[in-house]
Write a protein that binds this DNA or RNA. Structure first.
Lengths: 374, 374
DNA sequence: CAGGATAAGTTAGTAAAGTTTACTAACGCT
DNA sequence: AGCGTTAGTAAACTTTACTAACTTATCCTG
């Protein structure tokens, strides 16, 4: 997972040090889940002895990841515990959200996902003139934000629309007017900090996964200018054969035609459902119909996915005032098209906190990469 | 994966012994891939030192998994290698295929998937009279097959239609007339050998995955009395939130109605495509139409799945004479409904060797469980 | 209020797993 | 015969986590 891992995944011998690294991550994860905790308690949670845990904690304190926060106030029989906790003030990440080109956003977040510093830059895209967003604007935005961070950041996470390969290069992002922009290297060279670039829907999915760790099998649909989704099975995000999982915007939906799509086909999901379409319609007289049809088509597209992957949750992310009316339609369509199992109802809901969802997801990805913290 | 793993996945400390176990598995996997190999070569492949590899191999020889097969015939500068290999004669598994109730089948397979011993039992299902297949028939079949095995088997793998929970209990299998049959325990108690029970589509998927390890992101559609599928992302089979992944037979396909389905809905995939339907039609005058429509609807259902998961392969498994005509229709439908990426064409093909696919998959699952060999 | 019970955390020593270093054995080529 | 090369083994060391035993600190009971 770490960008510094030595070997490929499929065929990798395991040395004791690899186990150690995982155990250190487990300590951090557990601290994140429990807050200030004693070494003895951590040992029980993680499943190692007190001795080993003392050693693990000592290493983490040495690395500046964990702090001794003094004796426990709680009393009981036995010696009072000395609590340790993540060094929350210093475990900062820089997250960038490029999903709205008109408002490129960056923020410094702490380990709980709270935003400490915000920056924004407007960027005009004029596709007609072939002018895309200047990547230099992103680099400047990152620089300005990092300068205002109270402490150095662990890493930089960037959520961008479009397709991103595993080297952090944005292969194609029509909304930004980008083709083969080596964003990771650009930002890493400018800052000297580890950089992670992902699709914005993927980042949003990670945000939801971090916020509700119970969602081990879900799909998050991210409605914006287009429609994308992120899929989690068994607690892991699906990447896809070409790092292009989640690109459902241009799948034909239904067997009864549909509008022409710029992609050249007919009846693509994006012709049925998108923010511009919803927003325009809600002002007009056909609002109800557009919402009805959009939600229904989304359900038609999602039903085979939910069934094939046996997902337990469907999450809608996007502007709340537009997504809320779509939700009941989606829910109804799914229940109509799927074999109902009364023991395992499918939860259909809005994203827990849609604002800053891409920022929080990008930050979570950095934490995962750098600390192994979910 | 292993039924004997001690801890849950999300929170498990790693001790050196866990690494050792993985490394032993890696040696077996590498031997399976390369055939007879020297210790030095194995060390390079796996990524440990020659010393460690000698130790690993010694342990595997001690356990009867690996054999010393004598000096290499190949010559070159330097000392001649002494090759070791899997003890292929003794690494046997027993596989059972219950997907065709009229022909319950069992076989003993070696590590290459070759069948050494076969047994069959007919079983009548009379749903109208509420009589299902007697599980005792399966137990007897297993006993008879095991008696003919030249060596003790490592384990027993069973592929069954219907839903299987993680305790190896068949929750519901209409085709067998089963509800909550604790198949794993029944067979394990009768034989004293480790037993693994999975859905037949899952087994078929594993067979395909083992046969072509490059297929890390694929869906295998298994057409039989009903339609099921198995999905692989990142080289791992998707299990689903309730171990029910792949159940796509009763998803409504299309937005233009369809036939009534026994499940109570309309236009389920199984009403468009199934073996009985295809077979009946091929004898009549409407053959072409039924194939056309069935393949098309399958493509309609699969398109969102392929797009959302960024799959690179779609595999059709089932009776070859029925699947072959469906294939081109499926391929065309998918290409019509998906955004084509010329760099990454989607491969649509028939299963590599459809005969015995469930048997081979069940055997592969046992190998994975017992040896960590894919 | 002394003494026991209980829990947290440390110290000392051990077992397991892998590495480095150095060696022997065996082979082809000149 | 000697040189370079490769396979495999032996011994010593490092890392990691474990067990056993101890100290310290606290609560509770008689």
């Amino acid at each position: 997972m770490s960008s510094t891992s030595r070997r490929v995944r499929t065929s990798a011998a395991v040395v004791p040090a690899d186990g150690r690294r995982q155990n250190l991550s487990l300590v951090l994860q557990t601290l994140r889940r429990l807050g200030p905790t004693s070494r003895a308690q951590l040992a029980r949670e993680v499943g190692v002895t007190k001795v080993t845990m003392s050693d693990l904690v000592a290493e983490l304190i040495g690395k500046g990841r964990v702090l001794d926060v003094g004796p426990d106030v709680q009393a009981g029989p036995g010696k009072r515990a000395t609590l340790v906790d993540l060094d929350r003030a210093r475990l900062l990440t820089l997250a960038v959200d490029l999903s709205v080109p008109a408002r490129l956003r960056a923020a410094v977040l702490d380990i709980t996902g709270e935003v400490l510093v915000r920056e924004e830059r407007p960027a005009a895209v004029d596709a007609a003139q072939g002018r895309g967003v200047d990547p230099a604007v992103v680099v400047e935005l990152v620089r300005a934000t990092i300068a205002r961070s109270p402490y150095p950041v662990l890493g930089i996470g960037i959520g961008t629309p479009g397709l991103v390969d595993r080297h952090g290069t944005v292969r194609t992002a029509p909304n930004l007017g980008w083709t083969d922009v080596p964003l990771r290297d650009l930002v890493a060279d400018a800052t000297g900090v580890p950089v992670l670039v992902t699709n914005d829907s993927d980042a949003a999915t990670q945000a939801e996964l971090s916020a509700s760790p119970g969602s081990e099998d879900m799909v998050l649909v991210h409605v914006g200018r287009g429609v994308g989704c992120g899929i989690v099975t068994g607690g892991h995000r699906v990447a896809g054969a070409h790092h292009a999982a989640g690109e459902i915007g241009h799948v034909t939906v239904g067997t009864d035609g549909g509008e022409d799509c710029p992609c050249g086909k007919q009846g693509c999901l994006e012709t049925w459902l998108s923010i511009p379409r919803l927003r325009a319609a809600l002002d007009g007289p056909d609002g109800r119909d557009v919402v009805e049809i959009g939600g229904e088509r989304l359900g038609v597209a999602l039903a085979p996915i939910v069934a094939a992957l046996d997902l337990s949750e469907v999450v809608l992310a996007g502007p709340e005032e537009l997504m809320a009316p779509v939700l009941p339609v989606l829910e109804r369509t799914l229940s109509e098209r799927l074999l109902a199992n009364p023991d395992f109802p499918i939860s259909v809901r809005l994203a827990a906190s849609p604002q800053d969802i891409v920022l929080r997801g990008a930050a979570a990805l950095v934490l995962w990469d750098q600390l192994g913290v979910v």
